[in-house]
Simulated assay, not measured.
Amino acid sequence: MELFPKGGINVHPSLLPRWRGSSPIPHAIMFMDEETGISIQTIAPEMDTGELLNTHRIPLTGRETSASLSHLCAQLAGPMVVEVLDEIENGIAESRPQLGEPTYCRKITKKDGHIDWHRTSREIDARIRAFDPWPGSFAFLRDMRLCILEAEPFDDFDPMSKAGYVTNPSPGTIIAVVMQKGIIIRTGDGYIAVKRLQMATRKAVGFQEFACGARDIIGAVLH
């Protein structure tokens, strides 16, 4: 830092002090935040504790993935950096301390992608979106790795409306295939509809194609 008399700046994709750390975008999605943003901060000795030079709020719809939100943040951050650098060069930059209780995000690992079907439908959906593209979300179907690429909660599903419905299913049980919706899987508090998925060593497909090619999946339990 001594080599830079005017200090340094850093772009952080969250509204600091929320989600200090290395993975703020997945955490904002995983914890179902209603908004996130971009913070331009001064570089400080401790990670993400610098003073704020500029911020931009981003409302979240609840359908973002880490890929789509990262792309949006990258588009918005460029002009913000140019503006801050101009202000620093002209001697008019104003900084302010971070306010509020900080929260911290941990490093995401490959193991995080393994779906726990005992979680709520909204939690599972959020984690699938948070881990897109990395590490990806997956489960095992008859000991074969199955990547879940896209899904959404299915709050209105009535299992008794389907012929041959599974009684007393445990979380992770494939209940039905509903046209225009997805492959329906039991969760800890309801159901989730899987729309795109990929079996190990095979290409990603929509749920209709997968259901046509898979044998006897109704009643199978993902683990």
Rank of each mutant, 00 (worst) to 15 (best):
P102H: 11
D48V: 10
K111W: 02
S68A: 09
R119K: 11
I58L: 05
A93D: 02
E87G: 01
M80V: 05
P102T: 12
M80L: 14
Q98L: 03
L53I: 11
S68W: 07
D116R: 11
H71A: 10
C105A: 07
E89A: 15
Y104S: 03
N90D: 14
D48R: 11
G113R: 01
T103Q: 09
L99N: 09
L72Q: 13
E89Q: 14
T55S: 13
V81Q: 11
I88F: 12
Q98A: 04
Y104P: 00
H118A: 03
D86Q: 15
W117I: 05
R119S: 04
E83V: 07
V81E: 03
A67T: 08
D86A: 14
H56V: 01
L72P: 02
M80G: 02
I88M: 14
G113H: 00
I115Q: 01
E83R: 14
T49V: 10
V84I: 09
H71C: 04
V82N: 14
L53D: 06
Q75C: 11
T55Y: 08
R63T: 12
A74P: 11
L69S: 13
K110D: 15
L60E: 05
H71T: 03
R57M: 10
H114C: 09
P79W: 12
S95H: 12
E83Y: 06
L69C: 14
I58H: 05
K107L: 13
P59N: 12
E64V: 01
H56A: 04
E83I: 06
I115T: 00
G78C: 05
P97V: 09
E94S: 12
S70A: 12
N90P: 09
P79V: 05
T103A: 06
C73R: 04
G78A: 12
Q75G: 09
T120C: 04
I58W: 02
G91N: 11
A77T: 05
T65K: 01
L76H: 02
I108A: 00
I108D: 01
L99P: 02
D112F: 03
Y104T: 02
V82R: 15
C105R: 00
S68D: 04
E89M: 14
T55M: 14
G62P: 15
L85V: 09
I88W: 11
G100H: 04
P102D: 06
K111N: 10
V84N: 07
M47P: 03
K111A: 12
E89Y: 13
A77S: 13
L60G: 09
S68V: 03
R106I: 05
G50Y: 04
G62K: 07
L85T: 01
S66T: 15
